[in-house]
Amino acid sequence: MIILKTKEEIQRMREAGLILARCHKEIAKMIKPGITTMQINDFAEAFITRHGAEQVTKGFQGFPAATCASVNDVIAHGFPDHKPLQDGDIVKMDIVCRYNGWCADTCQTYAVGNISPEAERLVQVTRECLELAIPQAVAGNRIGDVVSVIQRHAEQAGFSVVRDLNAHGIGRSMHEEPSFAHAGKPGRGFRLQEGMVFTIEPMINAGKLDMFIDFDGWTARTVDGSLSAQFEHTVAITADGPWVLTEEV
């Protein structure tokens, strides 16, 4: 069942979203060759705690960390570790927090030092996929109107859209209904209603869309070893249009 939120509840989620937006602003300053994803993870966890919120992912079904840190061919759900990031890497930092009982979820892809033209183009196109999809998230549209924009833009650039990991509703829990892939046809799928809040989080691969899960049971990798990028926001459907709750403007 999709749980619709009131204006007041969406405002509470906005407060959680702003904590994450400000956390990512600080992380962006930290990204450089030599830093480890565990250092970034520890900073994010401390930042969230310092701002009166709580991290959500550590302990969730056995996940070991406060962030998902996914480097290069890791699509999502990577474990932070003590391996220094290298010049040319791309790293996705996905963070969820709960503030006063309400959750928000966001991910950014960061370039480490000087990245290749291919990696730079992948990151840019993935960011554009999210930016193009958000304006389609209006009451009366269908979810296919949102995700078809992502699929079209990614595939026109020669990239592929991951289907095996979904976006999701969010509220008091990190994962709520609905759950949906980032590919589809316009006019298809459930209709968007005022009060819905969900993530839009395209995962775009430079090569094939296929993936596999590592031996740890979490880490999702591209099957062909190609790079993968992701950007994610928590978005509310309001009478005035989509409201990006995890962006500071």
Results as ranks from 00 to 15, higher is better:
Phe60Ala: 12
Trp243Val: 12
Phe190Val: 11
Arg121Leu: 15
Ala53Leu: 02
Phe190Ser: 11
His51Lys: 12
Gly52Tyr: 06
Gln55Phe: 02
Gly189Gln: 05
Lys7Thr: 13
Asp164Phe: 05
Ala229Asn: 06
Ser70His: 05
Ile150Cys: 06
Ala220Phe: 06
Thr246Asp: 03
Arg152Ser: 13
Leu130Trp: 00
Gly59Asn: 11
Thr126Ala: 12
Gly187Arg: 13
Ala157Gln: 06
Pro242Ile: 05
Thr57Trp: 04
Ala239Phe: 11
Gly225Trp: 08
Cys23Leu: 14
Ala167Gln: 06
Ala53Gln: 01
Gln124Ile: 10
His51Pro: 07
Trp243Asn: 04
Lys92Cys: 01
Ile19Leu: 06
Pro242Arg: 03
Asp164Cys: 12
Tyr110Glu: 07
Ala65Gly: 05
Met1Ala: 12
His175Thr: 12
Leu4Asn: 04
Leu165Ser: 05
Ile143Gln: 03
Thr199Asp: 07
Asp214Cys: 13
Glu45Asn: 07
Pro117Tyr: 09
Gly59Lys: 11
Arg172Lys: 13
Ile35Gly: 01
Asn41Ile: 00
Pro186Gly: 06
Pro64Gly: 07
Gly113Arg: 08
Asp164Tyr: 02
Lys83Gln: 11
Gln11Gly: 09
Ile134Trp: 03
Arg221His: 15
Arg172Val: 02
Val125Tyr: 01
Ala183Gln: 12
Glu155Pro: 02
Val249Thr: 14
Met1Lys: 09
Arg121Tyr: 12
Ala119His: 08
Val96Phe: 01
Asn205Thr: 12
Ala157Val: 08
Val112Pro: 01
Leu85Pro: 00
Leu4Met: 13
Pro186Val: 08
Ile90Gln: 00
Glu9Tyr: 03
Asp89Phe: 07
Gly88Ser: 03
Ala236Lys: 00
Arg12Asn: 13
Phe215Gln: 14
Met13Asn: 08
Pro33Glu: 10
Asp216Asn: 14
His24Tyr: 08
Phe212Thr: 05
Pro84Thr: 10
Ala167Phe: 04
His24Gln: 12
Gln108Phe: 13
Gly187His: 10
Arg22Pro: 00
Glu54Met: 10
Val161Thr: 01
Val161Tyr: 01
